[in-house]
Nucleic acid binder design. Sequence first.
DNA 1: CAAATTTTTGACCGATTGGACAAACGTTAG
DNA 2: CTAACGTTTGTCCAATCGGTCAAAAATTTG
Lengths: 217, 217
Amino acid sequence: MRRLAKVNTGTEAPRRTRIQQEKRELILEAALEVFSTNGFRGSTIDQIAEAAGMSKPNLLYYFRRKEDIHETLMQRLLDTWLAPLRELDDIGDPLTELRSYIRRKLEMARDFPRESRLFANEILQGAPRIMPLLAGELKTLVDEKAAVIKGWMRAGKIARTDPWHLIFSIWATTQHYADFDVQVRAVLGPNRGGDGRFEDAARFLEQLFLDGLKPKG
Amino acid sequence: MRRLAKVNTGTEAPRRTRIQQEKRELILEAALEVFSTNGFRGSTIDQIAEAAGMSKPNLLYYFRRKEDIHETLMQRLLDTWLAPLRELDDIGDPLTELRSYIRRKLEMARDFPRESRLFANEILQGAPRIMPLLAGELKTLVDEKAAVIKGWMRAGKIARTDPWHLIFSIWATTQHYADFDVQVRAVLGPNRGGDGRFEDAARFLEQLFLDGLKPKG
DNA sequence: CAAATTTTTGACCGATTGGACAAACGTTAG
DNA sequence: CTAACGTTTGTCCAATCGGTCAAAAATTTG
């Protein structure tokens, strides 16, 4: 009876055995850990293989090239990473929607810091591997949501301002707590830099985005 | 007559000839370019040497190890990078002071994006080389300025909130335009992503930090 | 000028890298 | 069981890496 051929087709034919599925997940999990802390060029296949508990040739049996691992990781990443923005909905109170979006993004920075750092690494180095996605899929989504926000502004539900830069500022402030986590904890010190820092950040960001810094009165 | 001995003392004795000064600057400039786009491990001495227009052994005559270049670069960076925060002054109107700080930081993101990316690269990878500086010099400075801001809040000059996270949010939003520049331009597109994007960002950030998003009324 | 010193380079080295390969080992269908 | 296929590994390789070294070239000093 016909069995499966080579695994590493990469582009298509994802028919895989149980072992293949499991081992590929194991490798991707290990690669996320290694890539997110060392960058692509700073990471070695040996590091990933050791983190995944297997030999280098064995890893290369599941992913033919180092770049294939990174590519698979980035493809998966973008979907989950943009999910909060996709949820931004025209129905419902605008200020509540924005507050929820900020909160969800901050939770992702707290719960998936490796994903955030992997993405940041890629962008920092000029996004050589995902540039088309940025100018295509991402731009389309942001433009769409910017239109929604503009509608809220026209309706007088939120202050008039630039929707694109608003989205950037939400990305920047929330992802900062994942990407610059080391610095945040170093500056806050042992007491304030503990587990409570995300709640402090949530409170601060809510106030910033809703009311700004001008004193009441 | 006694001449200069080896150049690479590194830690002290910075007596240098004209050629040494010039060539060292040339190397540091080239290294800034290379390190900021490839990270430390992703950059090679050959790349830096080529960017500086000299041979690898010649470069190693001025900096004995690759790490020495990076270290020198980081030391210089922190001084100029924190200058805007150091200027944050207790005298003068608080809201004006904060607005000036945001503007200066945004100008630095525009005029020195490579420095910003170099710093981001280092922090992203756990700040292995400057951790002591973060927990020492940086924390001291931020704590000091947080106290100044707290004074403004007590005096009712600005809204009460967390001064540390306020500083983080200013860092995050401004540096975003340097570190994530590729993404910003990809999303904004050819028209809005042109040279005017920093002015748009300045306008938006001023409104965000002063008034927030709640509609006037 | 010439000697002393600084600067530059080609050649080289050991270590590490991404990846190839064949042989050994496991597993499963008939 | 056994043959066919999937999985794993030890070994090897060429390229690249950071860095050395001695000797040539350029510069400075007296």
